[in-house]
Design a binder for these strands. Structure first.
Length: 681
DNA sequence: TTATTCCGG
């Protein structure tokens, strides 16, 4: 194993954080070798590791109905397999779908493959993601998000347009991929029973979970692909660290003192606040370093950062200056930065868990899984050998869980269950998941849908109602879909469409912590005493009035990209409303109508002010508090509905709307029964 | 007394 003796950064480490060297490698840690731009494309394709296996792969894939394909990034599997299939005439009677967990991946892969085939994107090779369909009747190779294929399945559960479905990045185990596993398996079986053209399913993954995948898909064969790899040196701390932030700080400057300045550092941390704080400390210290130390540029990276600032991670630091990137797990998969030589892994991540009993989502810092730790390490040296410092001991590493718990076991299942029923799955309670969610989680999701009127029970069977069928046609959380469907009754569908769109994208409000006072001052003019929904609606209207002026957005701390998305979502929802013959109208100044509609649609998320000034969630009888980001934070309304409950430092309601107790009672008289106090109005 | 990991339709 090559080891560069020129900079052994572990040696001079401060007491308490001494690393030792370890020659342990992730089995098959592979990295892409960039082909030279001048090399003709067909030559480039033949240089990929997978090319050696082409003939063998094709003879296998021709026969098999299911295959698990294991190979790391750089093997070329995602771009080549679809082309090999096409070139060999496999599945020519229909389309080949290749799914990706992320939009950008689907789009850029389609672009790359179209280029390799020398065709215009959207002809032979196309892609489909939300808001964008770049395909035509000629399209045979279709890249798409997994969520998009799932949407299509609602209209065509047997996926009859497709002869091959390739589920890529399966190891990420997104909810959508996990549901698709069951959908394609069912489609495969049903097509066989009905004598239709068979459906081939190819699951592609980066190591891990191999047995689970194979077992699930009828003991399907596993094909291994070699890739290119650069060695990554792993260091562990000698002793457990009580303060991973302090350890990260020390490690950054340890490397900074010893490594050539062109070697960039990527630090994995848990969240915005932590990142901004460490960034400040690093910059302060960097100012007072001895002369033999070069300068340092510190770049934060997290999802809520405005796009312009996110781009800074791709800019090379000036010559002689080191780039240090402080990132959340966004840098594990979504953002790939070249030139990283060092990774520092705090071993921690912020993640959401869901408690079906309380209906509570808990957002908490926790340890990463082994798979995640390897993923982070792999970000060092994508072009060359790299080094990864783990701020924990090897013993601690050994005790990490092997795999991140699949999202399907950590989330609210209401929309998943609704989708399964819309797909015509008979027995949703016993759906064939690869990793089953807890029966409690499934039961609580079905109960939620029952309260919304989306499903009803008949002889122990759970059936989709006509309302539920309509709800499933919206790409929304069931309660939002329900609220839209109720809105014509309150003559405020235009307002509700805007509000639901605003709530279903990432926050349109930009809150840089450093400019807190300014933000508060600017927000004041939009604050509505009726709550956050009406406040957001007001901001959206103001945004439209200035036609999305960027300058206006900056002055008002509004995230213009997310605002743009709101418009896209709204027009998509509007189209669905047209198809459902829903009356679209505005209630004008009568905003009470909007709140009444929200109360009706969101009655499950209601809370009541208690005599001691705290709030009680009426559904679960949890004690909850108003989130400080709410415009109602200082107010004490008697009744509110809220969008979500999130447990961070306390159990907070986020995005609140002031409502009357009567409205809640009207919405669900039997549900509330005596839950409510005598009304005041 | 006061705070939002990350995707996706």
């Amino acid at each position: 194993m090559p080891y560069d003796p020129d900079h052994p950064p572990a040696k001079k480490f401060k007491p308490g954080s001494v690393f030792f060297r370890l020659d342990k490698q992730k089995p098959g840690m592979l990295l892409p070798g960039k082909a030279k731009a001048t090399t003709p494309i067909d030559v480039q394709r033949k240089q990929l590791p997978i090319y050696q296996a082409r003939a063998q792969l094709l003879s296998q894939l021709r026969q098999l109905h299911n295959a698990i394909l294991i190979g790391e990034t750089g093997s070329g599997k995602t771009t080549q397999i679809p082309q090999y299939l096409y070139e060999a005439g496999i599945g020519r009677q229909g389309l080949v779908a290749i799914t990706q967990p992320r939009r950008v991946a689907a789009i850029s892969l389609a672009g790359r493959v179209a280029e390799e085939k020398g065709t215009q994107l959207g002809k032979l090779v196309g892609y489909t993601v939300r808001f964008e369909d770049v395909t035509s009747p000629e399209t045979k190779l279709k890249f798409m998000t997994d969520g998009m294929l799932l949407r299509e399945a609602i209209g065509d559960p047997l996926l009859l347009r497709y002869t091959v479905v390739v589920l890529d990045e399966a190891h990420e185990r997104t909810v959508h991929t996990d549901v698709l596993f069951g959908v394609v398996k069912t489609a495969q079986r049903r097509r066989k029973e009905l004598g239709k053209i068979p459906l081939k399913v190819i699951v592609m993954s980066a190591t891990m979970d191999v047995d689970l995948f194979s077992e699930y898909f009828n003991k399907s064969p596993v094909l291994y692909l070699e890739g290119r790899q650069h060695p990554i040196q792993i260091y562990y701390t000698k002793q457990a660290q009580s303060d991973y932030l302090q350890a990260a700080l020390v490690t950054v400057f340890q490397i900074h003192q010893e490594a050539p300045p062109s070697h960039d550092i990527l630090v994995f941390m848990t969240g915005q606040e932590e990142i901004e704080a460490l960034a400040r400390t690093c910059r302060d210290i960097a100012k007072h370093l001895p002369d033999n130390c070069g300068p340092m540029v510190v770049v934060p990276l997290y999802a809520s950062l405005p796009p312009m600032q996110q781009l800074r991670v791709f800019q090379a630091a000036p010559k002689g200056c080191r780039k240090v990137i402080l990132a959340t797990n966004i840098a594990e998969t979504s953002v790939t930065i070249s030139g990283i030589k060092y990774v520092i892994d705090t071993g921690m991540v912020k993640a959401k868990r869901f408690n079906p009993d309380s209906g509570l989502e808990v957002l908490a810092v926790q340890r990463v899984s082994k798979a995640q730790a390897w993923q982070r390490a792999g970000r060092a040296g994508r072009e060359d050998s790299g080094i990864c410092y783990r701020l924990y001991t090897e013993q601690e590493f050994d005790h990490l869980i092997p795999m991140t718990v699949p999202e399907i076991q950590r989330c609210n299942l209401a929309s998943v269950m609704l989708q399964l029923m819309a797909l015509g799955i008979q027995d949703v309670m016993n759906f064939d998941f690869m990793s089953k969610p807890s029966p409690d989680a499934i039961r609580s999701a079905v109960e939620h849908l029952e309260l919304l009127g989306a499903v009803e029970r008949n002889n122990g069977q759970v059936l989709l109602t006509a309302l539920g069928k309509k709800m499933s046609s919206f790409p929304l959380e069931p309660r939002y879909a329900k609220t839209i469907l109720l809105s014509p009754n309150y003559a405020c569908s235009e307002e509700i469409l805007s509000i639901v769109s605003l709530l279903s994208v990432d926050s349109v409000l930009y809150n840089p912590p450093a400019r807190r006072e300014e933000v508060l001052a600017v927000r004041k003019k939009f604050m509505s005493s009726e709550g956050d929904h009406m406040t957001l609606l007001g901001i959206y209207r103001a945004f439209k009035k200035v036609s999305g002026n960027k300058e206006w957005c900056r002055e008002n701390f509004v995230n213009s990209r997310n605002m743009g998305l709101v418009k896209d979502v709204q027009s998509q929802l509007r189209e669905i409303c047209f198809k459902l013959n829903l009356k679209l109208e505005s209630c004008g100044a009568d905003t009470g109508k909007v709140r009444q509609c929200l109360a009706h649609g969101m009655f499950i998320n209601a809370a009541e002010l208690q005599p001691d000034g705290s709030y009680l969630a009426l559904d679960t009888h949890q004690s909850v508090a108003i989130h400080p980001s709410s415009v109602l934070f200082q107010a004490k309304p008697a009744y509110v509905v809220f969008n979500e409950l999130l447990h961070t430092s306390r159990c907070y309601m986020r995005d609140l709307c002031l409502v009357d107790a009567d409205w809640l009672l009207d919405a669900a008289p039997e549900y509330f029964g005596r839950k409510l106090r005598p009304t005041k109005s």
